[in-house]
């Protein structure tokens, strides 16, 4: 069964590549604008030996990873504090409700003013944008903790702090993890947006713009392909970590994805 699925998936990818190549070969589309599939794949392969691209990729990943780490360090405690202190949460909620829907890239021009260093700029934008899913998921997760579990512990004479550490945190952890996974996706979008909008010397976004101005569509789409593959891998890795860490968790549905 599983075997058949994998085979079909491979067949689907192969079919797509072949179809794209055939459409390209008919000459219906000018291949200066949309290169043939074979050219894109060749471009993608070339990129692996392209020092400039590798440096750009490293720069983007660094901003992404650093931004995400900082986000977790800021957003998880913030979410925990708000989730554990309902009066504070109630007071802050209108602010959150107004700030959250601001489309996060809109802060890029502001960040350009505030940060002269490109890495700082990107990290700051990531922290702003990627915090929301984590904070919100953490608040909701803490609110959803089974009251019975908390009362059980309280009835054994544990204080509020140990209730938070021993019951609330473990049962909220899967939701926090989901929030982090969502944040990782948001973060990469923001890093690249910031690169496109703020310019700078290094980054996949910069590489793509240079490839575009040099009319190297093959390199551009090749780099995009790598970005997509990286996204698939990092997401699967995070899902796998979640599965391992939270095997006890019965994959409750309905959390933001």
């Amino acid at each position: 069964m599983e075997h058949a699925r994998v085979l079909r998936g491979v067949a689907g990818v192969a079919g797509f590549l072949a179809a794209a190549e055939i459409v390209g070969a008919t000459g219906l589309i000018d291949d200066r604008f949309l290169p043939r599939m074979s050219a894109i794949l060749r471009g993608a392969a070339e990129l692996l030996a392209d020092q400039e691209f590798l440096a750009d990729a490293r720069a983007t990943l660094a901003a992404w990873g650093l931004g995400l780490l900082l986000t977790v360090a800021v957003a998880v405690p913030a979410g925990l504090a708000l989730g554990a202190l309902p009066p504070v949460e109630r007071a802050v909620r209108p602010l959150i409700e107004f700030l959250r829907p601001i489309p996060s890239v809109a802060v890029v021009p502001l960040a350009i003013l505030l940060f002269s260093d490109n890495l700082h700029l990107r990290v700051a934008v990531v922290v702003y944008a990627a915090s929301w899913p984590i904070v919100i998921n953490t608040i909701y997760a803490l609110r959803d903790v089974d009251p019975l579990a908390k009362e059980t512990l309280r009835s054994f004479g544990f204080g509020p702090m140990s209730v938070l550490l021993r019951v609330a945190l473990p049962s909220a952890a899967p939701f926090i993890a989901t929030g982090i996974r969502v944040a990782a996706g948001t973060a990469i979008i923001l890093v690249i947006s910031a690169e496109l909008l703020a310019g700078g010397a290094e980054g996949v976004g910069i590489y793509i713009m240079e490839a575009a101005s040099g009319n190297r569509m093959d390199l551009m789409l090749g780099a995009t392909l790598w970005a997509g593959l990286f996204g698939v891998l990092s997401n699967s890795a995070l899902v796998a970590v979640e599965r391992r860490l939270f095997r006890w968790h019965d994959a409750r549905a309905g959390v933001a994805r």
Binding site: R5, R8, A212, G231
Partner: peptide, 29 residues
């Protein structure tokens, strides 16, 4: 199920591409 088996990897790839990366591409195209 059959169709989704065939398309699953492509969909995963598509949704993982950071969309801003495609702005320069669509502009050129």
């Amino acid at each position: 199920t059959r169709l989704s088996d065939y398309l699953d990897p492509l969909i995963h790839l598509g949704r993982a591409v950071p969309p801003p990366l495609l702005v320069p591409f669509f502009l050129a195209l």
